[in-house]
Design a binder for these strands. Structure first.
Lengths: 217, 217
DNA sequence: TTCTTCTATATTGTATACAAAGTTCTTAAA
DNA sequence: TTTAAGAACTTTGTATACAATATAGAAGAA
């Protein structure tokens, strides 16, 4: 995607995530041109791209509508991530270079640094490092297709919401998982790497479930 | 995608699959307009869509290029299919309705009918029924996202090529797998369903490997 | 000759006008 | 009052013109 299209994509996406465009909303191209200050051509490009990432659904000759998510969808996304990220970790055992391992370690150290600081934890900073760790691992798995698939999966609105629920304790545990994955890679133990990564995603699902789905009344 | 865009998508895709547009080819929008007899707007739409399906890669301000596949990619696609289709089969155990099961059975019967006929087997007809079986199973799993993901995975050029290598024996075995999956669903045994589906995909990988990657000189 | 820079050309990116399809509202008949 | 048909309007789809960017080639300096 190019300049104007990217701009439109990012503006529309953030409006969807913020709730300005709730599920089922009909996104009209003409209105979006004034919102994004670009012409309809890049707007349409952005909408197609958002559809590829499952943010919206395009019905030919009818229009573009914001997709709505059920709790089944949340379950699905976590399960698919468990499978695919587990596979990525397994492949990384075979494909990762010493440089890859070093880079992964750096991200772990950065998160530890955040944890060691006093006061409320900087969740945004953690998320940035966390994202870097995971993407690096996908890349280290050596499969561009796997990376592309996972990129789309974790871009999902449900995943974007998950993060708000993390406590200091959760983050500490997540980083321990990261370190264990690195160890498994160093030990060339693909089953271990895969298993830890699966646990890692399942733990995230648990945090999400507690925070958003249960109603402790 | 709409009328003109779909037309362009299908024409360009078939040219890629046929080898008319080999890997790394620079697909120029202007040239494609004469080939597809539509304007550049739907051509661009088709190219974006082809990029979403990994047929081509778009580099901003540079152009669109046909992606090239390595044998690692083939391995990857089969492995991811094994994971995701296995998951689909597992979910189908929980979600499938009696009508779904009936429909799946019909496709199995159709394939048996093909096998019972004399003379060389109609591979194209088998493929059609096979595709229907798999897609029905994805749909029965109840996850639209999983369906969308798998649809893109099996659309890959490498997968499209696989099919040419099937013998009568291979097809018979594949249909036996199909029937066993149905049985597992009826028995509400998700582990069995998943396991058979994984075997099913691994067997396909084996056939592919024998036919295209080994060189029995 | 070789390298750099500038210009010409080719190609992609964006805006806009017009066409086609869908939606809504009005009006007339049952 | 309800339904059906049709016209007016809205929205998406397609073509095309123009702008921005990248590429290739030519001219000039080292």
């Amino acid at each position: 995607m190019s300049k104007a299209g990217k701009k439109a994509y990012s503006i529309i996406r953030s409006r969807i995530l913020s709730g300005d465009f709730p599920p089922k909303t009909h996104l009209k191209e003409e209105e979006l041109t004034t919102l994004c200050d670009v012409s309809r051509t890049p707007i349409r490009e952005a909408l197609r791209s958002l559809a590829a990432d499952y943010y919206v659904e395009i019905i030919p000759n009818r229009g573009t509508f914001v997709t709505d998510w059920s709790s089944d969808d949340v379950e699905d996304i976590f399960n698919m991530r468990m499978l695919l990220e587990g596979y990525a970790a397994q492949q990384a055992v075979v494909k990762a270079t010493p440089e890859d391992i070093e880079e992964l370690t750096t991200y772990c150290n950065n998160i530890d640094l955040l944890l060691s600081q006093d006061g409320p934890i900087d969740v945004e900073a953690f998320l940035a490092e966390n994202r870097l760790f995971h993407r690096k691992l996908w890349q280290a798995s050596g499969s561009k297709r796997l990376s592309a698939l996972l990129l789309r999966l974790v871009a999902q609105p449900v995943v974007a919401r998950t993060v708000m629920a993390y406590t200091r304790q959760d983050i500490r545990r997540k980083n321990e998982h990261h370190r264990e994955i690195i160890e498994a890679i160093k030990a060339k133990d693909s089953a271990w790497a895969r298993s830890i990564m699966s646990s890692h995603i399942l733990a995230a699902r648990h945090v999400y479930t507690l925070a958003f789905l249960d109603d402790p009344s």
